[in-house]
Design a binder for these strands. Structure first.
Lengths: 231, 231
DNA sequence: CGCCAGTTTGACAGCCATCAATGGGGGTGG
DNA sequence: CCACCCCCATTGATGGCTGTCAAACTGGCG
């Protein structure tokens, strides 16, 4: 892990190719925070658990971070996947003992410690409002994932999951996207076995609904059919 | 739906038997809001969609409200279950078109409209902080449900779901609780068929892990075994 | 009494988790 | 440079679990 200051933020932001309007507001928000914010640069497979200690709230400026937990059975479950612009809550006293890991080559995160969050509504009401807005967005993200996991058939789960993922990764329809996670990660995220994930993806490819340049590079060919077809 | 004022709040709160410390803070929060808050009393099967129009944030003071959506296939999915003290976000422009329904004989809800939420950090910073705190609690609730849904076996899903539900409904271990939803609701919430839910519950009962006075009244006998036993 | 919604149980086909094996790609060390 | 290893992805075979269809049972209500 490497500490960063706001001056170095630009290079990190430039690395996050294909900016979106929402992402711009997150970057501006980060700059306006001044010394209240703590930036950090991480590398692949880094464990970001140290972020949690101070409590408060965190977000991703570039790269992908996953929030996971190991069950008593030894199984890993990925609860959430945070990409550039996504916020997540940091609760040090959480008995569920989540851990955070970087799944891309590099990731830049930001956070506000709990003690600073406390004084924000008085000192920076405008910015605190933004925090609330993004926190509600986090709720939407989790609700969407509950809908994905609620699907009964594996093909449905994978189809709706990939649709959602591509929509978050790229604004343009049908463009090839680099999947930020392995088949194992997808399996642990949607609640399926790796083999079932692989089979479902192969099935979608054979039916011409998606295309795979490499196992990690995917393009959705028929977006609406991908979701509708699978009763 | 019947509008309420803060004066009538006491009777509604008294109806929510077995107060918890957290719930008390929510009630106090509601009182302190004064005219900013909008209270409403609902009856069984009422649709609370009118709450969403003004945006902002809502919470439950008594009873149970479920947040659901009908998929293209006609299936219903219950995304979240809100009980006394639970907050939820209201987004009128949400394309996912969630609807809210009361699943108990009676329910009392409160809400703050978006326009009032906007001015809160300046006018009532202390209370706005509380909103943020409860919103983070909502995130925890959804994360927990993602963990439940992620279980692969039906018995695991039901066991962990019932454990979670009972923990939210009653502070005392092993006490009988009135389930706030039908088997159909449970099925649509955890992503199983009704028959599978029924079989899983019967199975847990036969093994002596839970007891059923009536189909709706349940007591957990061996809490830790209920979760650990099922690899 | 009859109706209805909710719950439970049975039978069975189909899907998925598991075990097993193969192939590919990137890294390291000889 | 090549061999080797490890991780990832894919495919096959199989048993068990779950969704589906069907039927019986319960309690409440008019």
């Amino acid at each position: 892990m490497e500490r960063m200051n706001l001056g170095k933020l630009s290079s990190a932001v430039d690395a996050a190719a294909g900016h979106s309007p929402v992402y711009e507001t997150v970057v501006n928000f980060t700059r306006e925070l001044g010394t209240t914010v703590t930036l950090a640069r991480w590398e692949r497979a880094d464990c970001c658990d140290s972020m949690v200690e101070s409590g408060g709230i965190g977000w991703v400026l570039s790269g992908t971070v996953r929030k996971s937990v190991i069950l008593e059975s030894g199984q890993r479950r990925i609860v959430d996947l945070m990409m550039r612009g996504d916020f997540f809550s940091l609760q040090g006293d959480d008995p569920r003992a989540f851990s955070f890991e970087v799944s891309t080559d590099e990731a830049v995160t930001a956070r506000i410690a709990h003690r600073d969050l406390i004084s924000m509504p008085i000192l920076q009401p405008e910015l605190y409002r933004f925090v609330h807005e993004r926190t509600c967005e986090t709720i939407s993200r989790l609700e969407n994932h509950i809908l994905v996991q609620g699907r009964t058939r594996s093909a449905q789960k994978i189809a709706s999951y990939l649709s959602l993922l591509c929509a978050r990764l790229s604004e343009e329809q049908g463009a090839a996207v680099e999947l930020p996670m392995s088949r194992y990660d997808i399996a642990d995220h949607v609640g399926l076995a790796v083999e079932t994930v692989s089979r479902a993806i192969t099935d979608l490819r054979r039916r011409g609904l998606i295309e795979l340049e490499t196992p990690r590079s995917m393009a959705i060919c028929q977006a609406q059919k991908l979701l509708a077809d699978l009763t």
